[in-house]
């Protein structure tokens, strides 16, 4: 099909499907729209409606209690650290996995993807087993505390919350970067290296412009997931008002069970829903930019 350009062909395919009777098309579109509406859009409205059930005054009060503000602080702290660590890892790992050929590359790529497919609760459990009372790394942490005179706790404290959040969102950024870098190939970097450019210069001048939008896009997704992480953090954080994140606060309010506290939990949820919607919009903008960038 070399005689037809890509977009021409696509158009023909669309025409073939289109010229046929419209009934199937409209049935499929209707079912899809209904599915998306009932499964995805209605829950969003439901959160907002439920959060405003007791009026705006109650809403504002509910989202500004001491517990919620403390949880917001912990959430932001954990998210910022997580995004920094995972961005660094994502760039380094995707460079190592796409610019070189070595044995076991696919295996490492699979290992990086582990957090995608395991239960977040297991992530929490893993850190308890490592740093908790019976964990083998507990003496190491104790030793460091003795040496430095500090009192660092990991499990059931902020560092545990941060570690759990990092674990769960670990592959997000490398996952976005690897396909872009694979598609780009290594020719340009090789040429630059042969002409004498140093590693950092190559990255900054050649690789980075290619991955810029994919990186932004990965960072946004990672932020969203870090803000909302629940299962792993739930295992590692037990003190309301101190180590609770927003999702844990929502959980606590919801399980308290009174009509007021349930409305309050929806009010706190609405903050995260608004963030999720903003993330979706940004993500769409950057996805289109990243695609356009790739095609150039």
């Amino acid at each position: 099909m070399a005689y037809m350009k890509d977009d021409q062909r696509k158009k023909l395919a669309v025409d073939v499907t289109r010229n046929s009777k419209g009934a199937t098309k409209y049935i499929l579109i209707t079912i899809s729209v209904l599915f998306v509406f009932f499964m995805l859009i209605l829950p969003l409205f439901s959160v907002i409606v439920n959060s405003l059930k007791e009026g705006l005054g109650f809403y504002l009060e509910a989202i500004s209690t001491e517990y919620v503000l403390a949880a917001l602080g912990v959430t932001i702290l954990a998210t910022v650290i997580t995004v920094i660590v995972n961005t660094f890892f994502g760039i380094v790992a995707s460079w190592a996995l796409t610019k070189f050929t070595f044995k076991g590359k696919q295996f490492i790529a699979t290992l990086i993807d582990i957090p995608f497919s395991i239960s977040p609760v297991i992530a929490g459990l893993a850190y308890i087993m490592t740093f908790g009372r019976s964990g083998w790394a507990k003496p190491v942490v104790d030793w460091i505390n003795d040496m430095l005179g500090t009192d660092i706790k990991i499990v059931f404290a902020i560092p545990g919350v941060v570690l759990a959040t990092i674990f769960v969102t670990f592959p997000f950024i490398s996952r976005e970067l690897i396909p872009v870098l694979n598609a780009q190939g290594t020719d340009e970097e090789e040429a630059a290296a042969l002409m004498g450019a140093k590693g950092w210069t190559i990255f900054k001048r050649i690789t980075f412009p290619h991955i810029k939008w994919a990186l932004v896009y990965g960072v946004i997704l990672c932020t969203a997931r870090a803000l909302g992480e629940f299962g792993a953090v739930n295992a590692l954080s037990k003190t309301r008002g101190e180590t609770f994140t927003l999702p844990l606060e929502i959980d606590a309010l919801y399980l308290a069970g009174s009509a007021d506290s349930i409305t309050a939990s929806f009010a706190v949820s609405s903050i995260l829903v608004i963030i999720a919607v903003i993330v979706l919009i940004l993500r769409n903008i950057f996805e289109h930019k990243s695609k356009a960038n790739r095609e150039v």
């Binding site: 899809s32 909302g228 929502i250 999720a276």
Partner: peptide, 19 residues
Amino acid sequence: MDGVIELPFCLPTAVAGIT
């Protein structure tokens, strides 16, 4: 519609759960 498909990736699971 294309954008909304990814909502479950962005929405915190606990929020989805209670809703």
